[in-house]
Simulated assay, not measured.
Amino acid sequence: MEWLTGPFEVAFVQRALWSGILVSLICATTGTWVVLRGMTFLGDAMSHGMLPGVAIASLYGGNLLIGAALSAGVMACGVTVLGRARRLSQDTGIGLLFVGMLSLGVIIVSRSQSFAVDLTGFLFGDVLAVREQDLVNLTVALCAATLISVLGYRSFLALVFDERKAHTLGLRPRMAHAVLLGLVTLAIVTSFHVVGTLLVFGLLIAPPAAALPWARRVPVVMCGAALFGMGATFVGLLLSWHLRTAAGATIAAVAVLLFFLSASAAGLRRRRAEDAQPLPALDT
């Protein structure tokens, strides 16, 4: 029991655990729509695209959250503009912005005197350095994400499963898509401090994908994703403490591992169900 509970008696590990729980709830609410909508590559690109804003804010002593939000907003606008180009596929536009914004962020960070330290912190986060104010920001972000998801549930659901029907019903799918992009931006911006710009995508995608085979309703998927995310946070912090590994990277790795375990278990269950079905009777 001491091996399990000992690390969480330390104050900064407790804050790390609470921040991971809040991030898991935010990412479960948002990531479910990302997975169902098929916006995985876009979400990944946006998580990398906010690096220039974070780097500029850090270099000139500004607010990192504001810098990240502005940079992610530029990324979202760029994706929208390039997506309207007839001769350019959406994936191509996202890929170009992805590489361009990431390169620009690294170039900006390279101007600082502590290039390696700053870049490592931006890319991989520092969950053990979370402050009480960060917990307050995450709580506010969770409330906002939950409210947006509840108010836009019907529009998001129609957008995910039948965009044409959403337009027919007057649900304004373009507006719903824009709001969904804003929700993804909110989740990424408020969570990057915990696991970094590179690894926040693991908590955004892996838990909902792990919960998807076990649920048929969107709210149930969100609840399952929250449980997977919180489990990854607890196990990741525990392993990083005892193994002395990077906490944020360990959390993201555990989240991805849980996805593969869930997918394997779902596959076994499906095969057992198929084997249990009676064979059709032969005609005589």
Rank of each mutant, 00 (worst) to 15 (best):
F12V: 01
A16V: 02
E2W: 04
R216E: 13
I148Q: 01
S47Q: 04
A265L: 12
A276K: 04
S24L: 04
R216K: 06
L104E: 08
M46Y: 11
Q133I: 05
S47F: 06
L203Q: 03
T92N: 12
F156P: 00
L59A: 15
A265V: 10
L65F: 15
L261W: 12
D283N: 10
W241I: 00
V221P: 01
G43N: 08
A281P: 15
R15H: 07
G202F: 15
V35G: 05
V254T: 12
L128R: 07
A265E: 14
F41K: 13
R15I: 05
A263E: 14
S240G: 08
V184R: 00
F98N: 11
L171R: 11
L42R: 07
V136R: 09
A211S: 10
S24I: 02
L237Y: 01
S262W: 08
A209E: 10
S71M: 05
F115M: 14
G73Q: 06
Q90Y: 07
V10P: 08
L147P: 06
A72S: 13
G62D: 12
S89Y: 05
G95R: 04
F122R: 14
G83D: 05
S264T: 11
T168W: 11
P52W: 00
T32F: 04
A129W: 00
F124S: 12
L258E: 11
P7D: 07
L238A: 02
A55C: 14
V13H: 01
V117S: 06
L138K: 01
A209L: 13
G43H: 05
L183Q: 03
G267A: 15
A116F: 12
T30Y: 01
G20V: 01
V130T: 15
F259L: 15
A209G: 02
F161L: 10
A145G: 00
Q133Y: 05
A55Y: 05
A215V: 07
G83S: 07
L258G: 06
A68Q: 08
T197W: 00
V106D: 08
H177P: 00
H193W: 03
E132Y: 13
A281T: 12
C143L: 15
A144N: 02
T29I: 07
L204C: 09
A273Q: 12
I108D: 14
P207T: 09
V160S: 11
G105E: 09
L198C: 14
T40N: 11
L243K: 13
H48N: 14
V189L: 11
R244A: 11
R244W: 08
L171T: 04
L70P: 12
A255W: 10
R270H: 08
K165Q: 15
A215F: 13
G231Q: 04
T139F: 10
